[in-house]
């Protein structure tokens, strides 16, 4: 069984392409200097630790504010009404006085 002619055609294309140059001569000119410059930029551009810590401050401030709001709203709902407590006491006194006839 012979090979598919399309396969042969494709193989010929690949074989011919392999002989061609894939990029223009001169593309590599000065490449080492460009790489060295890029490496230097990456090396010097890395921020020191304290700059990273500085960026986290707004996050911490936001957390503190949210916590503060949450604590304030939860404490408000738990506040004891003293006038209600005192009125309970006086209602009992009035009831006792009524029943005993005092």
């Amino acid at each position: 069984m012979g090979k598919d002619p399309k396969d042969e055609g494709l193989d010929r294309l690949f074989a011919a392409a392999r002989k061609a140059g894939f990029y223009k001569p001169g593309a590599e000119y000065g490449f080492e200097a460009r790489v060295a410059a890029k490496v230097r930029t990456k090396r010097e551009g890395r921020p020191p630790f304290f700059l990273w810590a500085w960026r986290l401050i707004p996050v911490f401030v936001s957390i503190v504010i949210v916590l503060g709001i949450w604590i304030y709203t939860s404490q408000r709902s738990q506040r004891i009404d003293l006038s209600a407590v005192s009125s309970i006491g006086s209602e009992e006194t009035m009831l006792t006085a009524f029943l005993t006839g005092e």
Binding site: R12, L13, A17, A20
Partner: peptide
């Protein structure tokens, strides 16, 4: 490009 190779070699750049 896909024709009979007897027609001649394909140019590398073209391929």
């Amino acid at each position: 490009a896909l024709a009979d190779p007897a027609n001649g070699e394909i140019q590398g750049d073209e391929a």
